[in-house]
Every structure is written in structure tokens, then in C-alpha cells.
Design a protein around this nucleic acid. Sequence first.
DNA 1: TGGTCTTTTCAGACATTCCTGAAAGGCCGA
DNA 2: TCGGCCTTTCAGGAATGTCTGAAAAGACCA
Lengths: 201, 201
Amino acid sequence: MPDRKVALPLSPLVQTFVLHFGEMGSRWGINRTVGQIYALLFVSERPLTADEIVDHLGLSRSNVSMGLKELQAWNLVRLQHRPGDRRDHFSTPDDIWQIVRTLAEERKKREIDPTLTMLRENLMQDAQTGEDGYAQDRLREMHDLLELLTGWYSDVQKLETERLLQLLTLGSKVQKVLEAKDRVMGLPARLRRSKAQDTEV
Amino acid sequence: MPDRKVALPLSPLVQTFVLHFGEMGSRWGINRTVGQIYALLFVSERPLTADEIVDHLGLSRSNVSMGLKELQAWNLVRLQHRPGDRRDHFSTPDDIWQIVRTLAEERKKREIDPTLTMLRENLMQDAQTGEDGYAQDRLREMHDLLELLTGWYSDVQKLETERLLQLLTLGSKVQKVLEAKDRVMGLPARLRRSKAQDTEV
DNA sequence: TGGTCTTTTCAGACATTCCTGAAAGGCCGA
DNA sequence: TCGGCCTTTCAGGAATGTCTGAAAAGACCA
């Protein structure tokens, strides 16, 4: 009779990978279990059932269920059904670029959008009052920066993978292209200043 | 006698901002206190001492000390001294672009580099063994992706702010530029495949 | 309807992180 | 060296977060 508490063996490579993802979890804003489940699905050739995950990772069934729920909330795993099988089968998208896009989108939604909303509301409300001069400038600066970044992001998110690859591979050479068309477009002036004293931290 | 537990009043605007940063802290991988301290420094026209932070936010002195230590580990605050004053004065860089660069650098260091290292080591070691075919492919795919992204990032990090702004403002128009020079440079082929079935999650 | 297989919920045990006051440490001028 | 001022360390209480087994809920078939 097999010991239900010991995980089914994984190859050393997969084992290392899964454990690493678990440990990195906290830095990525997910917990160990969720990281491990994701890692396992990522390297699995075929979709896995929740019970298979339990067997490989030695977690409780309920924990796996919650972990999968969280991964679904992140749009990071997909659910599939097999004919004649009631169980849910889980997998990650094969296309790694799709994963990057999803990750970027979800992190933006959780980490940027709320702040942008808050800044917008507060700046709109307090624009009239002249108090808080410096703080208000500072907040507007941050607001404009985030708008610029998210605007660029949404443009890039729309690119086909092929074009995105071009852009990434271009890398430093982009500088050349930019030097060619050497004209700055209309920008909020406050984002353009570069203070000399800010070189050293 | 003033109640030492009640924070010195902040303007409503600053108050909202500070509390928001505190609450977002968990999503950003820092704790509430650290978020609040950073927010306060960000909107302060002049550098603040630890005791001033205590007075404004109503935190314990030791907590502020630890929070500032963490912010320094992130390179997000700078320490200044005033002649004839022994106390440390803290501030954030004035140049908001400098802040973005620092943030990107530190997050990369904490969230990407360890994984890249782990992938490199494991792939080098297991390259010979033919086992684990799919997992190994998958890991190499992730490795190549991270290399590409960090390579691009390091190129962009080198750009002057003016050029970076150009790049960001260009946004969707970048597509046009790319269409012009329509040739894909030498890429790892496995990063280029785009599977049709991966459109739906 | 009852029986089987599967997923989800949830109370509470366990673990981790956060925060504080008290004490220790460091620096400087007298 | 002492005393004042400021910062850091640290033990342990408070607050959060994680994980589990047991029970409930849902889905399907006969």
C-alpha cells in the first residue's frame, strides 16, 4: 500500500523546476502551492487532473482545488474536458507568448490600474484648490507617467507575435531608428525634465 | 499634552495617496508600512527625518526604521545629512524616470534573475540526457524567452530619458517602422512558432 | 430517487509576517 | 570618559496567510 503522503517521483529536472517556482512564489505575489502547481502544468505534455497534481506534489486535494481556482482567476490555466471522463483536466497554453501577454495584462490590472484610477479621481477633485502645491504636482507627474506607460503597453499588446519579436530583437538598434526621426512629439512638459542632481542614490 | 498615538494631520489629498499606497503594498511585494513611508516621502517637498515620518503616519519609531532600511535596500530612497544636524533625512529622487529605472532594475533582480540562473544551470546539466524531452523543451523555451526580454530591457535601460520618451510616445506607430524593415533577424526558431489552438483560454 | 464520482467550501490548526516597546549600539562634543 | 541624541536590534504579541480533513454541494447515470 503506497504512502499517500509521499509525492509520486518527478524527474530531477522537473523536481528542481517545481520547487524553484514554489519558492519564487512569494516574490511573484502567489503562494508556494500555486507556484508549484503552475510549474508542474507548464512542463506537462498533457493536461492533468487535480488528483494527478495531488499525487505528484503531495498536497491536499482541497489545497490543489484552491490553487487551481486562483490560477484560473489569473487566466493562467485552462480547463478541458475529455469525452467519457467527468474530471476536469488542466493545462497551460502551449504558446509561451500567450502566457507573457496574459501575465502582463493581469499584473497591470492588479498593480497599476487601481492606482491610476485613484490618481485620476483625486487630481480631478483637487485640481481647483491651490493647496498642496508640491504634492499635487508630484501626483500629476506620476499620473502622466502611468498613462504614458499603459498607453505604450496597450499598443504593444496589440502587436502580433512576429512584430513583437522584431521589436525585442531590434533592441539597442532602436536607438538608431529613433535618431533618424529626430523630433519629439507633443508631450506633457513635466515628464520631459531631467534633473542633474538625480544621478546618485 | 498631545496624544502620541494620533498622527499629525495630513491634507486629504496626501492622506488618500498614502493610504492607497499602503493598501497596494501587498500587491507590490512590500508591506503596508513601507508603502506608506514611500508615499509620504514621494510627495514631500523636502527630506524628512524618521521622527517626522513617525509623527505623520502614527507608526512606531522602530517600524519606521525598518521600513526605511527596506526602502534603502530597494534603492528607492536616498539618505541626506544637514550640516549641524545629526539626524538622517530621507527623500525620493526628484526625477520620476530615475524611479522607474530603479524599480525595473530591482524587480528584475528579485523576480527574474534567480529563475534565469536556475534555468541556465539545469539546462546545461541535463542537456545530454534525452529523458524529459518535453519538459526540457519547455524549460529551454522559457529560458530563451527570458533572455530575449532581459536583453531588450538592458538595451532600453541604457537609453537616455529623452530617447526613452520618444520610444514610448511612438507607441502604435512603431508598427509602421517595423513594417518598413520587414525582415526577421536570426532568432531561436522555437520562440517564433505561433500555435493556432492557443487563442482561447 | 439513490448512488457514485468529483469539486468546492470552511473551521480551525499551523506558519509566517508585521509591528511594537524596551534595550542596546553608535556617534559626537564636552 | 560621560551624557545626550539618534538609530538599530530583538523578543514576543498581534495580525495575516496557508493548508488540511471533513462535510457539503454538484453532476451524472441508472
